[in-house]
Amino acid sequence: MRPIALPTVVDIATPAGPARAHVHRRRGARGTLIIGHGAGGGLGSVDLTAATTALAEENWALALIEQPWLVAGRRIAGPPKTLDAAWVPVVQALRRRGGALATVRGPLVLCGRSAGARVACRTAEELGADGVLCLSFPLHPPGRPGRLRAAELALVTDAGRPIAAVQGEKDPFGTPGELTAYLEQVYAVPGTHAIPPRSAAAVAAAVVRFVSPLRE
């Protein structure tokens, strides 16, 4: 899949410095998907591209967010609290009156890849998300299955919010089988923590399957 065109770029002030939103919307959008990248940075990963392309074709409004550390050209992400503190005002700014996504009706889905998925889970309650989509959720550090981050998933499931994960079959940060202990909706695709191009269609299908009931 090729990346969709994202004609509107908005810089938004946050406590950690300016973040950048790449916004794509169409008239009569069915809902809003706001997406964050991982600690490795960049918006061009296979799964992010597949998800955004698929939902643009389904007529969802989209915003891909660059965290302030990435905008500033740094190579290392900040601590979780810093990431959350930047993410929340960005989403709020996009959706408040006068924001780039203010007039979009329908559900709000927070989405992220890896560390961005953790941010989406931790902030779903505060932002009133109607669903959370995790791409390559890092359930634990590689080789350390005892250091679970399942509590972040529970923030969403315990609140009764729909949540799904699209996970590489051999992801060292947590396999689909490991995630099924905490989530009902887990979509396994070929790959590891880095999803290969051959899995783009499977990612797209999983994403569409998850969001379809949310717009009804």
Rank of each mutant, 00 (worst) to 15 (best):
V186N: 06
E152W: 13
P176T: 08
D158W: 02
P197T: 10
R209C: 01
T157F: 07
L148D: 09
G174D: 09
G174R: 02
P197M: 05
G174Q: 02
V166K: 06
A194P: 00
Y182W: 15
K170R: 15
F173V: 05
F173S: 01
T175Y: 08
F173Q: 07
R149M: 04
A204T: 14
A164K: 08
A188Q: 06
A150K: 03
P162N: 08
Q167S: 11
A201M: 05
I195A: 05
P172L: 00
T175K: 10
D171W: 01
L148W: 07
A164P: 10
E152N: 06
H193E: 03
A164Y: 10
A151H: 09
A200S: 12
A205N: 08
G174L: 01
A205M: 03
F173T: 07
G177M: 03
A181V: 00
R198M: 03
F210I: 12
E152K: 01
G174S: 02
G146W: 10
T157C: 10
L179V: 09
V156S: 01
R161V: 10
V186C: 05
D158E: 15
A188E: 02
G160I: 08
K170E: 13
P190W: 00
L148Q: 06
E178L: 06
V207T: 14
A205R: 15
